[in-house]
Design a protein around this nucleic acid. Structure first.
Ligand SMILES: Nc1ncnc2c1ncn2[C@@H]1O[C@H](COP(=O)(O)OP(=O)(O)OP(=O)(O)O)[C@@H](O)[C@H]1O
Length: 696
DNA sequence: CTGTCCACGGTTTTT
DNA sequence: CCGTGGACAG
């Protein structure tokens, strides 16, 4: 850390930053707010994030040590960028160790104390797929006793368990409120949930929700720890507060309840994570939860032209008013947004590629251009067309880089090293071996567990086993334990098993530091390189990915840190760790969700068809349509200067060769078209259109 | 008990 | 059109 408390303290009146010059009076008031609860509620592009950034700088200048700030943001990158900005403002290196997402901060806390709540501090974090696999394993196990072959799918059960956790509700309540048709299965789902919980404990695993749930539990059950963090965090700042859920707000409330130095920032009209339990009531009820809250409104928009803002406002006016906000554009008049009616996604993509070329010729950076959409697969044709046109782009796909199966093939070895009780890791690892299926895995796992326990006695609960001594006992016995159970391995697989044991011996020989990069190299050499070549058709690409993984791993001394980082990086962030995409200037293709908080000179908002955007399934749930409309609002307000909105009249029907006609999105038909420059491309014979595709 | 082959179902958003 | 899960043969 190396930052002395008060290092940046300057007596009042001699602050380094000229706050008045960089901020408008409303922003300034929020930045220089006195201690105590504060709410900044303002529309899109009004400088909320900027205000929070200056607030951080201000607090540091006034003598608050950076390591006593808790800065909660929607992505880790957002926190990093804020701190970079603060660094520039103050002209000094600042590290804010407690800045990041709720999940990464909770993880940091739990790594110190989770032994108190029945976990080992070297627990493994499950990603979504891991959680689903574990739930499936639970269902399989339960099937022995109960026999409902029909019933909710594992995906739905996982969703319910997660929803319950995030809304701080019981499984029953969640089913009754949001999945009433599953009422007959309440007891099955509860059993599954209980078994899931038990398995996680036994295997020392935490899913994303556990990071928050267990952190809160820790604070509730250990007042002295709560006290410690309450005192540690002199000031709490939360960005994008409208998208926090009950669990998160309760956690923050706990931490803030002592000193009440909390500033939350957000816009209820931009709440787009309700499906994940986020509740914009959090921001609306903040003042009543914190009596004496100072409310700051910012009523100017610095980002967009008045014409773009007019479209956004016309759209959101169709939602019931939540919190009335004025928003006056600062920028001078520009061009009306263009509404493009086109035949199909191919024509849409063709138009976008052409426009991008035009913008590039005017000297605009590609990174200032974004194509935004509701669902990942909407970007299909745009991807093809941009590739064909040789226009570089980066796309944030649905699966994160580190969730791809070949990457996980590598990381399971590390996971088992760090946390030998990880059932999921052990399973994936054994199932990779030829001749070993689910049954053999079962036998091996049982034998493995009992050997592990016998060898080491009860699991070491030796106080905070932080990263540097995660090497302690566990992994040392791994080769021995694996060798000891080889009698359960069917004979055709014995040589492979011996290789596995050999691999772990080799790793052991690397020494006790457990540095990830060399270990991965050994794994590849000994085994996986070959496995990947044999398993995947596009193995060259995949092996390149592994090289990237190793390059990324070089930054880490500790495997435990490395694994936690992989799990906690958001989608966007993990894409950016790819060296290839890092440096080049490229157009951004992204879902609207992932574009939250970003801004671009040019935005193409595509696939505005009823059923797609708004999404048909989202409209089935209460408030769903409103949230879709907020999503549209977020999409529009990412644009600074140029906005293009597309309605393609048809698309290829899913699964077959036919064409499906699509109605125009109600988000377009419900607002006055005088706000747009309307461009109808349907009669233009642009290249490559579906019907010609279909017939050829 | 494992591995392969086929049929079916299904495309929302993510830490 | 793609991945997953279930049926069956080796
Ligand atoms: N006082 C100001 N003077 C000049 N530019 C400003 C000012 N305040 C904000 N801006 C600019 O306006 C743009 C939007 O700011 P910012 O991203 O902080 O808004 P926001 O309210 O967080 O937006 P959103 O909620 O839509 O993500 C940024 O480019 C920022 O630099």
């Amino acid at each position: 850390m190396g930052i002395e408390p008060g290092q940046f303290y300057r007596p009042h009146g001699s602050l380094r930053i000229d706050y008045k010059k960089s901020l408008n009076p409303q922003q300034l008031a929020a930045v220089t707010a006195p201690d105590g609860p504060a709410l900044v509620i303002a529309g899109a592009g009004s400088g909320k994030t900027r205000t929070l950034t200056y607030r951080v700088a201000y607090l540091i200048e006034r003598g608050v040590p950076p390591d006593q700030l808790l800065l909660l943001t929607f992505t880790n990158k957002a926190a990093d960028e804020m701190m970079n900005r603060v660094k520039l403002l103050l002209g000094a290196q600042i590290v804010c160790p407690w800045g990041g997402t709720f999940h990464s901060v909770a993880n940091k806390i739990l790594r110190q104390h989770s032994h108190l709540i029945g976990y080992n501090n070297n627990y493994t974090i499950l990603d979504r797929e891991d959680s689903l696999d574990l739930v499936k394993a639970c269902l399989k196990e339960l099937d022995v006793d109960i026999k409902p072959k029909v019933g909710p799918r594992a995906e739905v059960i996982t969703e319910i368990i997660s929803k319950a956790a995030n809304t701080a509700a019981s499984i029953e309540q969640t089913i009754q409120n949001e999945y009433p048709y599953l009422t007959p299965y309440i007891s099955l789902i509860k059993q599954t949930s209980a078994l899931y919980e038990q398995k996680k404990r036994e295997s020392n695993l935490m899913d994303f929700d556990d990071l928050l749930v267990k952190c809160k539990l820790l604070m509730e059950e250990f007042p002295e720890i709560l006290r410690h963090y309450q005192e540690r965090f002199q000031h709490i700042l939360v960005d994008e507060y409208q998208d926090t859920n009950k669990l998160q707000s309760e956690l923050v409330d706990l931490l803030a309840s002592r000193h009440r130095n909390i500033m939350v920032v957000g816009d209820d009209a931009q709440s787009i994570y309700g499906w994940r339990g986020a509740n914009f009531e959090n921001i609306l009820t903040f003042p009543s939860r914190y009596p004496g809250t100072r409310i700051y409104r910012i009523e100017y928009n610095y980002r967009s032209t008045p014409e773009i803002l007019a479209v956004a406002n016309a759209s959101i006016a169709n939602n019931p008013v939540q919190h009335r906000k004025k928003l006056t554009p600062i920028r001078p008049a520009g061009k009306k947004p263009t509404l493009i009616i086109c035949r199909d996604p191919i024509q849409q993509a063709w138009f976008i590629a052409n426009k991008i070329r035009e913008f590039r010729e005017t000297g605009l950076r590609l990174a200032d251009i974004a194509v935004l959409y509701r669902s990942h697969f909407h970007a299909m044709e745009v991807q093809l067309e941009l590739t064909r046109a040789g226009i570089p782009f980066v796309i944030t796909s649905g699966i994160r880089f580190f969730e791809q199966s070949h990457v996980k093939d590598v990381t399971v070895y590390l996971k088992l090293l760090v946390n030998p009780r990880d059932e999921l890791a052990f399973r994936r690892l054994t199932l990779m071996l030829p001749g070993i299926g689910p049954k053999t895995f079962d036998k091996l796992w049982r034998a493995y567990l009992s050997k592990l326990e016998a060898l080491k006695g009860p699991e070491c609960q030796n106080g905070p086993s932080n990263d540097t001594n995660s090497r302690s006992q566990a992994w040392e016995s791994l080769p021995e334990v694996l060798a000891a159970i080889s009698n359960h391995v069917p004979s055709p697989s014995k040589t492979e098993w011996a290789k596995l044991v050999g691999l772990f011996k080799t790793i052991q020989a690397l020494g006790p530091q457990l540095t990830p990069a060399p270990i991965i190299r050994k794994i590849m050499e000994a085994y996986l390189d070959n496995y990947i070549r044999l398993t995947y058709s596009n193995y060259l690409q995949r092996l390149e990915d592994i090289d990237e993984l190793i390059a990324y791993a070089e930054q880490f001394k500790s495997t435990n840190d490395f694994l936690a980082q992989l799990a906690l990086l958001t989608n966007l962030e993990s894409e950016e760790t790819l060296i290839a995409t890092y440096a080049t200037d490229a157009v951004r293709l992204s879902t609207v969700h992932q574009a939250k908080g970003l801004e671009f000179e040019v935005v193409f908002l595509i696939m505005l068809c009823d059923g797609l955007f708004p999404n048909a399934r989202a409209m089935g749930i209460p408030g769903g349509l409103y949230e879709e409309r907020r999503l549209f609002y977020v999409g529009i307000t990412r644009a600074k200067t140029h906005l293009f909105i597309f309605y393609p009249e048809c698309r290829r029907s899913p699964g077959s060769q036919g064409l499906e006609t699509l109605e125009i999105s109600r988000f377009l038909s419900e607002i006055p078209w005088e706000l747009f420059e309307v461009l109808d491309l349907r009669s233009y014979n642009t290249p490559g259109f579906y019907s010609s595709f279909v017939s050829s």
